[in-house]
Design a protein around this nucleic acid. Sequence first.
DNA 1: GCACGTCCGGTAAGCGCTTACTTGGGCTGC
DNA 2: GCAGCCCAAGTAAGCGCTTACCGGACGTGC
Lengths: 369, 369
Amino acid sequence: MSSEVGPGSQPPTIYDVARAAGVSIASVSRVLNAQGNPRADTKDRVLQAVAELGFVPDGAARALSARLKEVVGVVVRRPQWHETSMFTDEDENLQFPDMINRGMEIVAQRHGFDLLVRTVDLEEPDAGSRIFALARKSDGIILHDRVLDPDQLDRLARQLPVVTLAGQATRSTANVHGDNEGGMRAVARHLIADHGYRTLAYLAGHEGSPDSLARGSALADEASAAGVTLLEGEEWRGRYQAAGGAAAIERLIAAGVTLPRAIVCANDQSAIGVLHALAHHGIAVPDDVAVTGFDDIPVARHLRPQLTSVRQSIQDLGATAFETLYSMIGGARSAVRGQDIALPTQLVRRQSCGCDPQSAAPRKAEEAG
Amino acid sequence: MSSEVGPGSQPPTIYDVARAAGVSIASVSRVLNAQGNPRADTKDRVLQAVAELGFVPDGAARALSARLKEVVGVVVRRPQWHETSMFTDEDENLQFPDMINRGMEIVAQRHGFDLLVRTVDLEEPDAGSRIFALARKSDGIILHDRVLDPDQLDRLARQLPVVTLAGQATRSTANVHGDNEGGMRAVARHLIADHGYRTLAYLAGHEGSPDSLARGSALADEASAAGVTLLEGEEWRGRYQAAGGAAAIERLIAAGVTLPRAIVCANDQSAIGVLHALAHHGIAVPDDVAVTGFDDIPVARHLRPQLTSVRQSIQDLGATAFETLYSMIGGARSAVRGQDIALPTQLVRRQSCGCDPQSAAPRKAEEAG
DNA sequence: GCACGTCCGGTAAGCGCTTACTTGGGCTGC
DNA sequence: GCAGCCCAAGTAAGCGCTTACCGGACGTGC
């Protein structure tokens, strides 16, 4: 059977091209990489042979020889499964990291790089070694939201460039994050000054998350500056997830706690959970309790009421992380190493804070009802 | 400065390990890959050296030598930007492919593989060549929803194993998709037999999408079998996107078309757009017009009303695609090549079809109002 | 005690590229 | 007209692994 189907014909190598063009493999390589000054006719013959054979250089060989894989590893933290709930199988938090990755990918593409994406379960014992394995397939690593302890991070950074997202810069790594403080202060001022709310609560994210901490302390600052009551603490923790947010509210209500006038959530996902739990108990948002999120993920505007949130250009986060890593790979390491890069954020007023659906104008609390 | 920071210390090679353990590089390789029967003490010394140096083999070198990269390329179609609308920046369709990828990744991980994910814009001129470049960095390729024309697909499949999602199997490629026909027949029967609706419309997906076609014809079959009116055609096309679904409804209303009793959407994303457009015109769902989706993406249950849809185990789609590709890479190519694999689907009754919010029990149309 | 079989582990040949070094043909300049 | 240059193109080394092959140490059977 000559009409062979499927991978039986190995892809052509540079030797095949050289033979077809009647030149040496070095010439082929030079033409393809625009090195030296190949004579016009040499160049033509090579290019024609390449086109005829459909030659594309093998990535592994190229990587080994050129010491550049044109691949960056991306490590995303996989949320652990929680108690069975209506959110169980929804892959919480999926959207946010994925949009960041999208941003990276768009920029990476411009530099001819690809992304090797791996999710790790923090509970899993050898998460660290799996990240190191990824590293050996890549030219650099981008770590989402704290997936490695400081020791291992340092060991990793000693071997190749590392950029973290929503972490903190170290001597050997750069970090990229949204302007948490600015965004949260805007939320706080809006709720306090524009709407006149006097009791707030902060529904925190993961324990120890730098983002959650920064957002929380900015809110606390504004609240105390305005003499407003702020509820927070272990019982106010949503872990960035809808199920977590809903569970927290359920527990609080079950405990008979009087809810504050506004609940400020560490991110949109947990705000979604809060909205559900409140709706479940017949508590009106924003009339009884206002709710705000953070991140402005796409679904935020599809909720009822539409969620007031803080927009970070999520894709920019990814794009900036990649660009930073790229410059480190390029060699200008010391220039950006240790840098902490904050990207601007912007308050997006919708309905859940109490603003008017149409004009998004604030309504003072006392005007309502 | 001895306290060197950052990538200055190259990662250790197998030579370093061999030297430290006092053996040859071949022995190191054998221990690491469990080849031959190394003597216990040889093995111990190697393993200790590996641990001390933190050695992990370089991916490129391993790939070149072993002819296995342990990487599979995944190509996702990037939605083109549409007219400015409230959906413009929301990265339509992002969730669905991403969940499929997640399914792949979980299985890939068990085999030590990683995913190299690349999105392509179909408009872009060299989409094909970019996919071929990806191919040379991978051991096999998984193509989402028709990103390559048949000629190129064939050429690609000649070089390495290829699996498509929601496409169609060819002599040289396998295909994985949800059971569109079964799912859609269930929707149709539910709307017609349980709810008693007599006029339906089918809001199609991309032109030529095998999924959209299969769903449409299953619906048409059931409709004609029941003697029910089915509206479809160019003006009923949502292109799988919220913006597309909303725009279609807007155009139909503007044209003064009388809406059917139920709109069956080719996927959930476009159903979201339809819900928005209907709400915008004060048309009640499901009381005036019922709406159904397909895919059962996570947000489907967060909508008001909650969206009735057809669940496919999205992650299974990805997992199955990977397993299929993996067996092709393994060598048992001819076994699965050309196979078309359909995964089960299941109707999920929620509110948007007219079922009762609590019990999800169908209410006959005449009972409403 | 010698021939042979077994089994570890070392040596070296690639895998398919990039690139430093070398060769040689055609110019220039005196 | 010949030495000296310049530059295109070929030769070969090497990237860090895997593995075929081979050599040597030991054990067995007669």
